[in-house]
């Protein structure tokens, strides 16, 4: 089964990830927001074809965790293992330019990520009919779909998604779920924070509430520094403070 999928992928010119093993893992991770640890002692792993859904109340640190995994900020402690250039990140903001058309927006990201064809992505997210419309005239849900289409053109295996279904209607949510499923089937993986049930039966759910950093579970004290880099050398500032 896996082997045929890989065949498919190479025929389509998609970079393929032969290893069925773990492609993203976190080890005893502590992530911090503004110098304050928010999640602590978190470990998870994600193999090709898997999806992990992060749950937890607002303000718990889901966004911080996803930004850390995407490499936008350093982890306060612990390690993240992922092959280089394997993560595609999508957040609340879609990075769309309202002055540019749908095609222009998507082509830019496709070119940035090595120039893949955007037509399948448009088709997949049901945007073909809107291709020439300026992004400014799209509805919130349509913009969101365009933002998600960007994931397809990155051709990266690990999708890190922060609330991907915001402002999507039921139909679009189903479309998105189907897209994720197709991505998984092609050997990809997804890590997402979402509140709604996507109907992805194979999804594993990780409740982050259990990892809330507190002074009692051994999370590092906030030392008044920004995001820690774990390389403080012989400077025991944290111990002092």
């Amino acid at each position: 089964m896996v082997a045929t999928r890989i065949c498919d992928l190479s025929q389509r010119g998609v970079i393929h990830y032969t290893s069925p093993m773990t492609i993203l893992s976190a080890e005893n991770l502590t992530v911090a927001r503004g110098g304050v640890p928010v999640l602590h002692g978190l470990s998870f792993s994600l193999a090709a074809g898997q999806v992990l859904v992060l749950r937890g109340p607002n303000g718990l640190g889901k966004t911080t965790l996803l930004r850390t995994v995407a490499g936008l900020q350093p982890a306060m402690a612990g390690k993240i293992h992922a092959p280089e250039d394997s993560i595609a990140y999508a957040a609340h903001a879609d990075g769309l330019k309202s002055m540019l058309s749908v095609v222009e927006n998507l082509s830019f990201w496709a070119a940035t990520y090595g120039g893949s064809d955007i037509a399948p992505a448009l088709l997949q997210m049901n945007l073909t009919g809107l291709a020439q419309r300026p992004a400014a005239t799209l509805s919130a849900g349509q913009k969101r779909r365009l933002g998600l289409a960007r994931l397809l053109v990155t051709r990266r295996p690990v999708w890190v998604l922060d609330e991907p279904t915001v402002s999507l209607d039921t139909e679009s949510v189903a479309l998105f779920a189907q897209t994720v499923r197709a991505h998984l089937a092609q050997g990809g993986a997804a890590l997402m924070a979402t509140h709604i049930d996507l109907g992805l039966t194979e999804a594993r759910v990780l409740d982050l509430s259990a990892y809330r950093a507190s002074l009692h579970n051994g999370a590092a004290d906030p030392s008044g520094f920004g995001a820690g880099r774990g390389d403080h050398g012989d400077d025991d500032f944290g111990a002092f403070l």
Binding site: A70, G71, L72, I87, A90, A93, K97, W109, T112
Partner: peptide
């Protein structure tokens, strides 16, 4: 503008 609309985050995770 790129900072506000999230493009800068996406550019930072892009392969450039």
């Amino acid at each position: 503008l790129d900072f506000e609309d999230g493009s800068l985050d996406l550019l930072a995770t892009a392969p450039i």
